[in-house]
């Protein structure tokens, strides 16, 4: 299940498509589950007339959460010790997102095998929407 240190090398990558066509409904679903009801994410009238954006956009934390699936699918269930991202660009309804992890280091610390990953999610134009780092415990 979990990634094995002996079978992974620096520079290896793992890529996953997160969505082909991000729906407004999924953004609403995230608002409900997370409790973040900022109207910028679901209220078209507020977002276009008051906040002057072209349309609603996804919570950064939704993109981070979707990207987290790629990371945990790669390293194994419950193996993350750290996960962090910067939000670099807005994600809009209809966007197609692809997330990639790249192995930066395979190392040992306090008798544990760890991998350090760079994490990047891009939209259909190849623009980076989130980028960050993750560290996970792996098997020998």
């Amino acid at each position: 299940m979990a990634l094995q240190a002996s079978k992974v090398q620096v520079g290896d990558t793992y890529t996953q498509k997160l969505t082909e066509d991000l729906s407004r409904t999924q953004i609403v679903q995230y608002a409900g589950a997370s409790g973040d009801y900022n109207p910028l994410h679901s209220d078209e009238i507020f977002t276009t007339k008051v906040a002057n954006y072209p349309t609603v956009f996804a919570h950064g934390m939704l993109t981070m959460g979707m990207t987290g699936r790629m990371v945990t699918d790669f390293v194994g269930d419950g193996r993350l010790t750290a996960y962090g991202v910067r939000f670099t660009r807005q994600v809009w309804p209809g966007d197609a997102l692809t997330a990639t992890a790249k192995v930066d280091a395979v190392r040992e610390e306090d008798g544990q095998n760890l991998v350090d990953l760079s994490v990047t999610t891009v939209n259909q134009d190849g623009d980076v929407v989130v980028m960050g780092k993750a560290t996970a415990r792996v098997d020998p």
Binding site: Q29, A33, G65, G68, R69, T72, D73
Partner: peptide, 16 residues
């Protein structure tokens, strides 16, 4: 139940 709804919202079907 909250974990289930959150996982659905981020599009993660992992049974765990």
């Amino acid at each position: 139940g909250h974990i289930m709804m959150f996982a659905r919202a981020v599009g993660d079907p992992n049974p765990i």
